[in-house]
Write a protein that binds this DNA or RNA. Sequence first.
DNA 1: CTCCCAAATATGTTCATACTTATTACCATA
DNA 2: TATGGTAATAAGTATGAACATATTTGGGAG
Lengths: 229, 229
Amino acid sequence: MTANSWQAVRAEVLRRIRAREWPPGEPIPHEADLALELGCARATVNRALREVAESGLIERRRRAGSRVALHPVRKATLDIPVIRVEIESRGEAYDFSLITREETTPPPSIRARFKAPDARLLHVTGLHLADGQPHALEDRWIDAQAVPDTLTTDFTRISPNEWLVLSVPFEGGDIAFSATTASATEAQALTCPEGAPLFVTDRTTWRGERTLTSVRLLFAPGYRLHTRL
Amino acid sequence: MTANSWQAVRAEVLRRIRAREWPPGEPIPHEADLALELGCARATVNRALREVAESGLIERRRRAGSRVALHPVRKATLDIPVIRVEIESRGEAYDFSLITREETTPPPSIRARFKAPDARLLHVTGLHLADGQPHALEDRWIDAQAVPDTLTTDFTRISPNEWLVLSVPFEGGDIAFSATTASATEAQALTCPEGAPLFVTDRTTWRGERTLTSVRLLFAPGYRLHTRL
DNA sequence: CTCCCAAATATGTTCATACTTATTACCATA
DNA sequence: TATGGTAATAAGTATGAACATATTTGGGAG
């Protein structure tokens, strides 16, 4: 970060944007000009501007040049760790308790997430505990044909959450966050009042054309997902 | 993306990780060796590995080399647009309705977020509408000393959300997502039943040592925050 | 045997240069 | 006046070489 590091260039660019020396919507100087002005190589300016663009503050297009974003869409990065790691990193004891495990016909809403109509689905539910307290209720469906060893794995020893992350390479996924209220059975599992507000994450991961697994996590009341920008 | 682009190198690295040619926890070849093997410059390998590391799949340390992450902490990127833009990009008509606006003494929980004890805080609440339907209830506090023109801006013409993004440069912020249930007044504003589950985002943004604004957004039932990984 | 310092080393960064590619602007043609 | 092709341009990428920096390793001093 001494004189002409890319971080220094980025800092200077951010300063000019914040100071309105480069107002929103206006084009900024070309990479080559900036390199000349700041006394560094164009590659260094490129690296810096690329980072700024990734944060959403400037927009870049070939030939057209770079301009300060008019409506900056801020990008926040969420860390999505394995639940056991998340709990243990807070210094709490982790435990998992399997509730149900059955190979069964899924409701249409679940079925729709698995494009393969022949998929044999395993349904697993369980509770993640932190220091003995309920932390999250996991409700998961796994495509047993797409995921080897699904039917022979003992989920009382390892949570499906962790087992899948360790043993099944995936290519991508969708995540959605929402809110719901605890049903009677959910309230009992999470030891909270019926109707309590619960934070929900729904995640579906796939490899190639095949959906591997789809999971709903209900977090105990008070859970907050936190990040910075 | 032809032969030896950094994207091609990244694809090959991802393939080897997924195929378990490079198992979790194991070190991977050095940049120089990979460059030689794949027939490209070390800088190209560096670029590719840096991207893979940013996604959380490998861990890199100087002198120690790179290794496949044992517990990959997946990184998901959230887009946080101005609410008006979010709604209009879905093709819906946006409107904002100011509910209250007063300079008043904040409760201690809010006060704690503004480090400056002398801060004069403006409290603004309003409703964001999509196609006439309630979308989100905004409850915001603004430090009038840190943010110029706070007291003279007409928030019936522009929402504080958008005004702040456009006119106040900030350096960073905290965001937390959680769930709550609608109180009586919240239910009335959002035209939903009392006790309905609401998705909440709490955001505090700052510049230097000064907290600029702190906002709580209550989204109408059914709202989902969506991303991919 | 333990502790600390120095050498070795892998990643991190900068640079000049050259080439690639998307996009715009301009001009000629219909 | 439209339209389509083409040249100009700015970002994107690749490369080899050099230097910077964080860690580890190993050896020497105590």
